[in-house]
């Protein structure tokens, strides 16, 4: 877990959250941990940006939430992808791959 904090590109956080949740059901802390895990510690999402994003995605209809018990029996709000959220994840993944490929090529050009 590197302590280096990389600034998240605009729009990256939403995609990371959708990806981190995937087919599972996670509460806020769980999502933040999963993002750290799947980016090998590059991105550490603070609650100050995580929760606004979660609520934004829920309002957009990409996430749905429910209250449940956490691993250590705390009542927590869990999130899962909705059907539109799932297709949004696909769309954004594709867009991101295009951008990433273009950027990599552009930076290699001389």
């Amino acid at each position: 877990m590197s302590p280096k904090q990389t600034n998240l590109l605009q729009g990256t956080l939403d995609l990371l959250i959708l990806k981190a949740i995937g087919d599972g059901e996670f509460h806020g802390l769980g999502i933040s941990r999963r993002i750290e895990l799947i980016t090998q510690g590059t991105f550490q999402v603070k609650p100050g940006s995580l929760f606004p994003a979660l609520h934004r995605l829920e309002e957009a209809g990409w996430l749905s939430s429910f209250w449940g018990d956490s691993e250590n029996n705390r009542r927590a709000k869990f999130y899962r992808l909705t059907k539109t959220g799932r297709s949004q994840l696909e769309v954004e993944t594709e867009q991101w791959s295009t951008i990433a490929l273009a950027m990599t090529n552009a930076l290699k050009a001389r």
């Binding site: 806020g28 929760f51 609520h55 250590n72 927590a76 709000k77």
Partner: peptide, 16 residues
């Protein structure tokens, strides 16, 4: 109330 509970749960879990 729901927001309050949600953020509180986050802090509580980290504290635990």
């Amino acid at each position: 109330r729901s927001l309050d509970e949600e953020v509180r749960a986050y802090v509580d879990m980290v504290t635990d």
